[in-house]
Nucleic acid binder design. Sequence first.
DNA 1: AAATATGTTAATATATAGTTAAAAATGTAA
DNA 2: TTACATTTTTAACTATATATTAACATATTT
Lengths: 212, 212
Amino acid sequence: MRKVKNIIPEVVVRRLPRYFRLLSELEREGKDRISSSVISKRLNITASQVRQDFSHFGAFGLQGYGYDVNFLKEEIKNILGLDKEYNVVIIGAGNIGKALANYKKFNNQGINITAVFDIQTKNIELPNGLEVSHIDTFSDFAKNNKVDIAVITTQGEAVEDLAKTIKECSIPAIWNFSHFYIQSDEKTAVENINLNESMFTLIYLLNNLENK
Amino acid sequence: MRKVKNIIPEVVVRRLPRYFRLLSELEREGKDRISSSVISKRLNITASQVRQDFSHFGAFGLQGYGYDVNFLKEEIKNILGLDKEYNVVIIGAGNIGKALANYKKFNNQGINITAVFDIQTKNIELPNGLEVSHIDTFSDFAKNNKVDIAVITTQGEAVEDLAKTIKECSIPAIWNFSHFYIQSDEKTAVENINLNESMFTLIYLLNNLENK
DNA sequence: AAATATGTTAATATATAGTTAAAAATGTAA
DNA sequence: TTACATTTTTAACTATATATTAACATATTT
């Protein structure tokens, strides 16, 4: 059995998708082995850190050889949990909701958008025969269907209540695009994407470029 | 003159917008003073860290009293650079591009979307009389108009070239929503928002909830 | 006088970078 | 083909840097 330290630091977890992406690229390029120094160059992460990151999960590489691209990719895929299937519902059929529903990349990755909800079920074009359901039917849907991830793309005050409802429905993950900051807890993983915060950070960086 | 340490750690910078948001909320709630312990509770950041963060910029508070909400908000606003105006162009008039163009919150914050570009200038509804211009006219536009921030919402291989063009036009900030990771440099601030990476991280967190 | 609450310093924890012994691959010569 | 020296590269360890938390002296309010 693989030696795995119990808790992987979140900084490391957040680098895993980048490694995964690079390894997918390398596979497309036909490469079948890779060294930490090459990974270092392509991702702008020190080679030492690359090895340190991988060592959290055990020994993936071979001294004098490097890493097997396909093996490493599959390992990271498994660590991330991308070997399983996930049902995703989108709440809010505005521009962001539509953008996510149409996001091609998710389809071939075990991420299935199974429903879209909004306060108005108007004529919105969605792929794969998806239709917009009324938000009032959300709770029932969540009770009768396996929902792994709820995506919040609505704005306004109602988000706080919505987050409560999602947690009550025992949906274990929230991808939150609203202004409201949702706290993760023991039963709910949360990924907050706050466009305002991101833009403000960018503006700070823009104004402080010379400090870099 | 305020005592300011030269380099503010990026982790601190990334918390500033959260403080700013809380302070705006507090202002709306009619509060005119606030303590680090209350900030701590509302943002789930330790009080000690709150004080440590602020101390990077000098002394904002008063012992035994706390912080003046409006003063602190204005200080953070200035630190972030939100007292100035920014011209933003959006490249890509797909769903994400449209979503950002319609983003109400930006208008009253000195963030002005001045142009939208795409490979097809078709009939896309945009606010404030904005029209979609052809991407081929982008370079000329950037040379003849002050552009502070370029937003990339296109996908596909062309992004790498686009980033190069943007840097050549001396646009000092890129808000990147594409899959391609753009590296910041001395002359270009970059904020990468990678939905795939965020989703994959969320999936990891979802599968490792009990570790929290 | 007691309670509150900052700013700063010190201590702890976490993250990143550097170093090295050992393992494997490669190259070369007989 | 085999022996063996050289090169490559990891895994583990060590050192440094950064970030977070705790502690406390000092100032203000009540």
